[in-house]
Nucleic acid binder design. Sequence first.
DNA 1: AAAGATTGACTCCTCAATCTTA
DNA 2: TAAGATTGAGGAGTCAATCTTT
Lengths: 148, 148
Amino acid sequence: MKDAFRLPIGETGRLLSLLSAAGAIEDQLESALGEVGLSIAKMGLIANLVDIDEAISLSRLADRCACVRSNITQLVDRLESDGLVQREADPDDRRSIRATLTPAGRERYEAGRAVLEDRVGAMVARIGGKIPNSIIEQMERLAGRACS
Amino acid sequence: MKDAFRLPIGETGRLLSLLSAAGAIEDQLESALGEVGLSIAKMGLIANLVDIDEAISLSRLADRCACVRSNITQLVDRLESDGLVQREADPDDRRSIRATLTPAGRERYEAGRAVLEDRVGAMVARIGGKIPNSIIEQMERLAGRACS
DNA sequence: AAAGATTGACTCCTCAATCTTA
DNA sequence: TAAGATTGAGGAGTCAATCTTT
């Protein structure tokens, strides 16, 4: 979210500030990844491919990325034209298309991981080097997906 | 951000979880506002108009919304076709275009405010009715715009 | 009919280029 | 020249409709 608009109503303004800060953090990660030709969305997809370490159908990828299939179609389009990901046919089901990482994609992942580690390190240093569990828990609770 | 991808690296994964939770909260506000035909972006703009309470140039609006001018051009396009905002010429500077709220816009703002208050109330109730200052402060610090 | 992928149309955002007015 | 607004192109996301294959 770009900016917390002023709403002098109970907790709403405070929640909007929280989201605004989260947006600023996200922007910084986006810009860090931009330095190596990635974005959070692209990094998210290739991180999944690295994690799985084998060809995976675009549908399963959509599940893992928690987004809609058509979004993956377009994201893979861009990653394919970046040369980081490849589509391949699934011999067992001709409806299905699977994505794999190219060698360049794997290298790019490493670059993204490094740049992210750096930037996050600098951020987290500002609050003493560790993100307290309590913050994560409260945010998850607010989101209604608390683990407890 | 859609989903925190797994990055088994120091604090990075934890920060991504935080952003993912923030995204989930944002989605819920977006959907609440959607019930009255608004979005966070639209609500942000009309909340600024309500706050200012007079015609304001699109450039100043862009500053207040913390976004780029061309974004305001398009947002105002959509709000104008929703009938919530109107453009008017500035008699003092013929380059400038000012935005004003229509009566429908003001009513819609009230609807948005109400629905937001409800939804935020329900969320905040899950953590005891108040968002602790400590969370906001830590998030601002992480974002590098700490007030202290 | 239902699943997998794509396409088209839309919101929301950015940047770069353009056009008008100051 | 610079400031105000718009346009064009593109990234990232959604939804609805389509097409092929199961």
